[in-house]
Computed example of a mutant assay.
Amino acid sequence: MTELFRYFQKFMPLNPESLAALEKICSVVHLKKGDNLQYFGQTCRTIYFINSGVARIYYYKDGVDITESFSFEGDIIARVESLFTGNPSQKAIQVLEDTCFVAINAVQLFALYDSHPQIERLFRLIFEAGYVETVKRIESIQFHTAEDRYEALLLKPNLLQRIPLKHIASYLGITQVSLSRIRAIQR
């Protein structure tokens, strides 16, 4: 829980009572490379913090596997469209290497909001930051070339060693052949 609580600290400090309440609704989950954390058609009822490893949210469009996002150590991952609506998701979460998560039960979390206003504020700040990241992702697709988006990905350390190129290409919205051309130019 140490890394998770450090993550919370980036947003705001919590009193010991709120930390203890959060710890009670958390559990540790370990998955092997290639496993799905959540499946297509499943309703998201858990928010995950990545202690170690890499995960992606993905979906299929016209039979093509498309990566929506990557998450690394120190990131939160959830299918928020399902979490907030209670509807099954058309997306899945897959781990790309052996991964350790802290799972936060969202139903129990939301129940804590009334008795622990600090927790409600903390998660509002976390979800606001996630929303801003989503808007930035949409704007990068709208306003930047695949080359620019690829360069931005390179700012994450060891990304190319940890993520298969087919997933990087789908995330960028290009073919693997186009990605190979971009990589050749970048060298």
Rank of each mutant, 00 (worst) to 15 (best):
M1T: 12
R6W: 00
Y7I: 02
F8A: 05
Q9H: 10
M12D: 03
P13Q: 08
P13E: 07
P16S: 08
E17C: 10
S18I: 03
A20M: 02
A20P: 07
A20D: 06
A21N: 01
A21E: 00
E23D: 15
E23G: 07
K24M: 05
I25V: 09
V29H: 01
H30A: 10
L31N: 09
K32P: 01
G34V: 00
N36D: 11
N36P: 06
N36E: 11
L37W: 04
L37Q: 01
F40Y: 06
G41V: 03
Y48I: 05
F49A: 03
N51I: 13
A55G: 08
I57D: 01
I57H: 02
Y59T: 10
Y59L: 06
Y60E: 09
K61E: 13
G63Q: 00
G63M: 01
V64E: 09
I66W: 00
I66K: 03
E68F: 07
S69H: 03
F70V: 10
S71V: 10
D75A: 10
I76K: 01
A78S: 15
A78T: 15
E81M: 08
L83K: 04
F84Y: 00
N87K: 13
N87T: 13
P88E: 01
S89C: 06
Q90E: 12
K91M: 13
A92M: 04
I93N: 03
V95G: 05
V95A: 08
L96D: 09
L96E: 07
L96N: 07
E97D: 08
E97R: 00
D98R: 02
A103W: 04
I104H: 05
I104V: 08
A106W: 06
A106D: 12
A106I: 09
L109Q: 06
F110V: 14
A111M: 07
L112P: 11
Y113E: 05
Y113P: 14
S115H: 05
H116C: 11
H116L: 04
P117E: 01
P117G: 06
Q118K: 02
I119S: 03
I119M: 05
F123E: 10
I126C: 13
E128T: 15
Y131E: 10
Y131L: 14
V132P: 05
V132W: 04
E133F: 05
K136P: 05
I138D: 00
E139H: 12
S140C: 06
S140F: 01
S140W: 04
I141T: 11
I141W: 00
I141R: 08
H144K: 13
A146P: 06
E147Q: 12
E147P: 08
D148G: 05
R149G: 10
Y150T: 11
Y150N: 03
L153D: 09
L154D: 07
L154F: 04
L155H: 14
L155A: 15
L160M: 15
R162K: 11
P164Q: 09
H167G: 11
H167D: 14
A169F: 05
S170P: 10
Y171G: 09
Y171M: 09
L172W: 04
G173F: 00
G173R: 01
I174T: 12
T175D: 11
L179V: 14
S180W: 00
I185S: 13
Q186P: 07
Q186V: 15
Q186T: 15
R187M: 12
